[in-house]
Amino acid sequence: MIFEGNIHVVGDHCDTDVMIPGRYLSLVEPCEIAKHIFEEVDPGFVKRVQPGDILVAGKNFGSGSGREHAPFGLKGLGLSCIVAASFSRTFYRMAIDLGLPILTCEAAARAAKVGQRARIDTASGEIRIDRQVFRTQPMPPFIQEIIEQGGLTAWVKAEVARRRASA
């Protein structure tokens, strides 16, 4: 899959409490959660993001509390893809399962600047930032299968159907 959009940048160890504070954990609708993303540290963030934009982060993105509100909210804002130097593992899995593509590429994460354009090919692992080209590991085939179906929900439905057919 290919994504193109404007870049937003955050630093290292961006934790989920900063993305969406605990007091909002009683919200369940992605569009409601999206209104509060980075509220404490960057109140203008929500207004600056346009649908299709790409978030580029430093290392250990999504650390701390494993809360689906974080990837839900980022996806609900319209962000199409996240590139980071590294991800917290719970965030990584949550994003994949919700159908939010994410790639690990330290060089691209370090080079990206706010307002640049990015073009990302999740199948080949090619990341273009303005005229610079970076290559990283594409997502493993099993993970790509989940992303291509739009998340784990569709994958499970297909698996249930397959089990019924073979039963």
């Binding site: 899995r93 399962d97 099993f142 998340g151 784990l152 499970v156 249930v160």
Partner: peptide, 18 residues
């Protein structure tokens, strides 16, 4: 281990995970 919440739903559906 902490897991995605969709992943937890999948365990309740399929009795398996990865």
């Amino acid at each position: 281990t902490g897991m995605s919440w969709a992943g937890m739903a999948a365990i309740m559906m399929l009795d398996e995970t990865w």
